[in-house]
Every structure is written in structure tokens, then in C-alpha cells.
Simulated scan of single mutants.
Amino acid sequence: MHHTPRTHQGPAGSRRAEDITALAPRPLRHVLFRQQWRDLVFLHWPADPFEVARLLPPGTVPDLYNGRTYVGLVFFRMRDLALGRARALPYLGSFGEVNVRLYSRDARGRRGVVFRSLDCDRLLPVLAADAAFRLPYRWSRIRSQWFDSRLVYRTHRRGNPGAAASVWLDVQDTRVTPTPLEEFLTYRWGLHGRAFGRSYYLPNAHPTWTFRACTLLDRHDSLVGAAGLSEPAQEPVSVLYSPGLPVHFGTPEVLPVPGTTRRR
């Protein structure tokens, strides 16, 4: 399937945003770690750009599609987490995850995601991700189960059961083509974060997404509000299901922050 690259301008004063492409626009020079994502469910709502802007790392701005930005709630199962070319970690390399994410762009025009929370049901990956990248992982209880064609995810945060989410989908075998908005939301080739006083960009690469037709049967969420955003007052504008794919992550790059100078 051929996708025509699309470009959308963001806030004035920054470099033109890179094209939206179905495959990573830049090869990874080195693979820092790799993993498999399985049974992904994406829910998305419009978000206030001014509210989003204050939650992003310095050196990034909200990425806009037709003047709007979005917040995503994503459920999936992680499998076969591995460092570099090493073998996948047994047991510790497989777990459930639910994240709240925003959409960002840096001064080079690279589009990314910013995680506001990542709920995970393995404690060691939570500690390791926090130590290495200062990602906002939270140790949670996560369950997923198939009932014929219906998929259910449930999560609640340990120590804070009020921070919880669930989703119930009916998934069909029919493949679907993402809309231009859904391409904007899912064709993301890196994440922006902040660790040890510096903002960074961590690139990734994976095959083209495959999506299947699905129907949202029920949902509950308090994770978006717990992540510092206004809770959605409407049904999601996009609901996607993907059976999954392998993902590789490269090495992080420190972002220049406007208004600072680099020492020689």
C-alpha cells in the first residue's frame, strides 16, 4: 500500500515539520534495544494546545494537525524486550503497558510522542526506564484477555487504585486503512523526553502498521486526568486496533533548547 507523505505546519517560528511517512524517514545508526508490541488499542481525543505545551520538554512544541493537537490512551502487551543484539530477556521482557501520550515536534522538525504516564505490570522495567530515561513509568496491575473476537484490557495503579482504565473492543479480521489524522497519530518515529536536566530525542523504526476494523464497546479512564490533562468529555475521535509489530530503538540525541548557548 502506498502512502503519499503529508506535511502539516506547526506553530510559527520553528522549522517545517517533517513529512508523515509509513516507514521511518531515517535509518537507525545503532540499535539500543528492541521489543515486540502486541494487541495494540489506540484511543484519541482532541486536546488543548496550550494545556499540552506546558507539559512538553523544553525544545519541543505541540505537533498540530489542522490546528489541533491530541492526547492518546494506548493499551498493548510488550514481548521479547532485548538490549542491542542480545537475546530477549526471559520473563522480565514481557509485560502489559498502558500509556498516556502527547504529540510533539522539535526544532529540526522531527515529530515524536511525549509520554505523560506509562503503566506497567513489571517492577524491574519500571525502575530501569526511570533510571535510564526518566520516563514516567508507574507500577500497575494490568490484565488483558480475548473472548472470541472481543478484547478486554483493565489496569489500575498500585497505591492509587483511582488511577485506572479499561477498554473493551470487538475486533474483525478486515484490514482497514488509517485516515490522514490516524496516520498523523501513529506514524511516529521517536519520542521526546527529559532526563538529567536535558531534553532528548530517542528514535525508533518498525514495519508499516497493520490495522483491523474494530468497534468500541465500552471504556473507562481516569489516567488522562491523572496525567495532568483535562479529562475527555466526549467519545474518542479515533479507535484503532493493531495485532502488533517488532520495534527497534536507536540511541538518544540531546536537543538544543532555544535561549541557551553551547560552551565550546
Score class of each variant (00 low, 15 high):
residue 237 V to Q: 13
residue 216 L to C: 07
residue 82 A to D: 09
residue 74 V to Q: 03
residue 94 S to F: 06
residue 201 Y to E: 02
residue 123 L to M: 08
residue 139 W to G: 06
residue 36 Q to A: 07
residue 58 P to A: 14
residue 42 F to H: 11
residue 95 F to C: 07
residue 187 Y to L: 02
residue 202 L to R: 05
residue 235 E to C: 11
residue 102 L to R: 04
residue 255 L to W: 02
residue 62 P to A: 00
residue 60 T to H: 04
residue 206 H to K: 06
residue 159 G to H: 13
residue 4 T to D: 08
residue 62 P to L: 06
residue 172 Q to M: 10
residue 37 W to L: 09
residue 212 R to C: 11
residue 104 S to D: 07
residue 217 L to D: 13
residue 244 G to F: 03
residue 54 R to T: 15
residue 111 R to T: 13
residue 53 A to G: 10
residue 84 G to H: 13
residue 42 F to V: 11
residue 128 A to D: 04
residue 101 R to D: 05
residue 78 M to K: 12
residue 76 F to P: 01
residue 130 D to W: 14
residue 178 P to Q: 03
residue 129 A to S: 14
residue 9 Q to S: 15
residue 95 F to R: 05
residue 132 A to L: 15
residue 60 T to M: 02
residue 229 L to G: 00
residue 6 R to K: 12
residue 115 F to M: 08
residue 108 R to N: 08
residue 186 T to G: 02
residue 8 H to C: 06
residue 123 L to E: 04
residue 226 A to I: 01
residue 178 P to C: 07
residue 76 F to Q: 14
residue 199 S to I: 10
residue 13 G to T: 04
residue 168 W to K: 05
residue 182 E to H: 10
residue 209 W to M: 00
residue 72 G to A: 15
residue 151 L to I: 01
residue 76 F to I: 08
residue 192 H to N: 09
residue 38 R to N: 09
residue 103 Y to W: 05
residue 28 L to G: 07
residue 69 T to W: 01
residue 206 H to F: 03
residue 80 D to F: 02
residue 146 W to S: 12
residue 159 G to V: 04
residue 128 A to C: 13
residue 205 A to F: 02
residue 159 G to I: 06
residue 33 F to W: 15
residue 45 W to Y: 01
